[in-house]
Simulated scan of single mutants.
Amino acid sequence: MQNIINLINNLQLYIVIGLVVLVIILLIMNVIIFKSLNRLEKRYRKLMRGSNGKNLEELIVKYLDNIDNVKKESDDIKKLYSNLNSKVKNCIQKLSIIRYRAFEDVGSDLSFSIALLDENNDGVIITGIYGRDESTTYAKPIDSGMSRYELSQEEKQVLEECINKRI
């Protein structure tokens, strides 16, 4: 027993230094654990925000119901978009106009041709011919970019410009 006491007395300085190092390591570990716990608590509070004491299962069910509602609304919006997209294809999307002088004795570019086409190049060409004594306006239907009626040079030009426009 005396040998053990003598050994401890001889190594007392080393034992104290070892214990001090161990206490410092434990203090550092304690600080790290408290920081981790603080981060975990912040994440928990963020997860539980707005729960007002409800249990976690009720909160998760509420969020899943919200997700289902959003998914249903998204599907409804997709259907509405598809419906609108199909309707827009038949609307006038391309327009071209040209003004010109139909007769040499008339002073200005008062005659015109307008092409109004949808995505499929279906539509109409409206032409107004202005003369000194009378003016005439007429329309020619266009199917797939072609007319079953004879087109004037100006009408051909306005139709070609309209067909080549990007949507």
Rank of each mutant, 00 (worst) to 15 (best):
Q153E: 13
M29R: 11
L7A: 05
N90K: 07
L13N: 15
D68V: 06
V158N: 01
Q157C: 06
S152A: 12
L116N: 08
L159Y: 04
S51W: 03
E119S: 14
L84M: 10
M1G: 09
V70N: 04
K72D: 12
D122W: 03
Y44Q: 08
E58C: 09
S111K: 00
N30S: 15
E154Y: 08
E160A: 14
N69E: 13
R39G: 15
E155R: 01
V106G: 00
Q93M: 14
I114A: 07
S113G: 04
L47I: 10
C91Q: 06
V20E: 07
N121K: 03
I97N: 09
A115G: 03
Y149N: 12
S96P: 02
I92Y: 15
N66Y: 07
K94Q: 02
P141R: 05
G50E: 01
M29D: 15
G145S: 04
Y138E: 04
Y81R: 14
E57H: 11
G50Y: 01
I163A: 03
K87N: 10
R49E: 11
L26H: 09
V88F: 15
M146W: 14
G131L: 00
G128C: 06
C162V: 05
R101Q: 05
S74V: 13
K140C: 04
E161N: 14
G145H: 03
I163E: 01
L116I: 09
T136G: 03
G107H: 04
M146A: 15
L40F: 12
K46C: 12
I77F: 11
E155Q: 05
Y44G: 05
L56G: 05
I28M: 09
I5A: 07
G145R: 02
D109P: 01
P141Q: 05
V88D: 05
P141G: 05
D118K: 00
E154M: 14
E119T: 08
N38V: 05
N90R: 08
K156A: 13
V16I: 12
K62V: 10
N10R: 13
S86Y: 06
K165N: 13
L116H: 03
G50M: 00
Y130C: 01
D118V: 02
